[in-house]
Amino acid sequence: MTRLLKAVYTIWLRDVIRFYREKTRIVGMLGQPLLYLLIMGTGLSSSFRMSWGPGEVSYLEFMYPGIIGMSVLFTSVFSAISIVWDREFGFLREVLVAPVPRWTMAIGKALGGSTIAMLQASILILVAPFIGVKLGPVMILQLLGMLFLIAFSLTSLGITVASKMETMEGFQMIMNFLVMPLFFLSGAMFPLRNVPPWMETLMRADPLTYGVDALRHIMYAASPARDFLVQFPLGTDLMVVTAMSLFFITAGTLAFNRTE
């Protein structure tokens, strides 16, 4: 048992060390969501008024949890994609020949990606006061827990995709046809209301929708506008995200097992 935990820990540690070694990656990963928040949030909220609710919720408040969800999505999927890099540069083989079962690799990788995604999201949580969102310590802990769950499921999804990829050429495809749709349909930028039925169906099928919804539940738990901001009960959100985590980590492990 200790042997297996040690293997999971090793894979996790490597991802974390590599992350803090790369200062440009850290800057880039923090800069992107902050830019979205600053430019899109400010720009859109000055031209849009929330057409529903009591009118006391700003667009920025609506979008803020969505941007955190976005940063978790991007970071998680990119961390998982590093498997393809490892394959190209050979290190993956060092891991694949080690005398430990493959699932330890998949889990170590999923935990590594989740940790990095959470670190990044934590920094975004720090800007809450500037958005006008008040967060207590308990709320922050709940948020971190939720973020971890979302990140874990999305990294696992990324691992499943990455273990099928031989080269980085498919990377752009994944961005355009997986990551961006997941983001746009998640309700991060606009609510799941007043949209055509086909779109609503897609949004309901996007697992990230429930993650972002859960974040809003936690952030605006005390706000009178909460019921206007969220779309599903918190229980539904939690169940969907947990089920998604279990499903994708299983799929990721199986995909990893077949890698030669």
Partner: peptide, 12 residues
């Protein structure tokens, strides 16, 4: 095992 191609993690 030592392979023909490197399997080191060059960033570490």
């Amino acid at each position: 095992l030592v392979f023909q191609e490197t399997t080191l993690d060059e960033r570490l």
